[in-house]
Amino acid sequence: MAIPEYWREIKHRYKLEAGKCKSCGYIVFPMRLICPKCQNQDFDSINLSREGTLITYSVIRVASSRFVNQAPFAVGIVELKEGVRILSQITDCNINELKSGMKMQVEFRRIFDDGSSGVINYGYKCVPM
């Protein structure tokens, strides 16, 4: 992955920084320039809460090379307290015991690295509470 591409997303990936529309209150994650609900262009910067609920999930058994060392691993869509949904890996869990509706917390993890000599890409993953 190109380093500038990684670098410019750091605020989203490290801190779950999101935008709250000043006009209608809708929360966008990641940040956007235009509110998809009301087309307003002014946002307050907020950090999303690091707790949520598992909406749906799967276990990736055939992964791309970048993730093959981690397979099999679970992925899921998690709705955070603010109602914003994120897609992330579900880590530190028994992959056979996941259920929709489980409570999740967000942790800071390595997502993948660009080989043993490249940059390490960090970000968020969810862990069952």
Binding site: Y14, N69, F108, R110, I111, I120, Y122
Partner: peptide
């Protein structure tokens, strides 16, 4: 440590 953990990730969690 889990495969997706290292000194940085654990430091972040402890610091948070």
């Amino acid at each position: 440590p889990a495969p997706d953990q290292d000194t940085i990730t654990m430091s972040v969690e402890a610091a948070r």
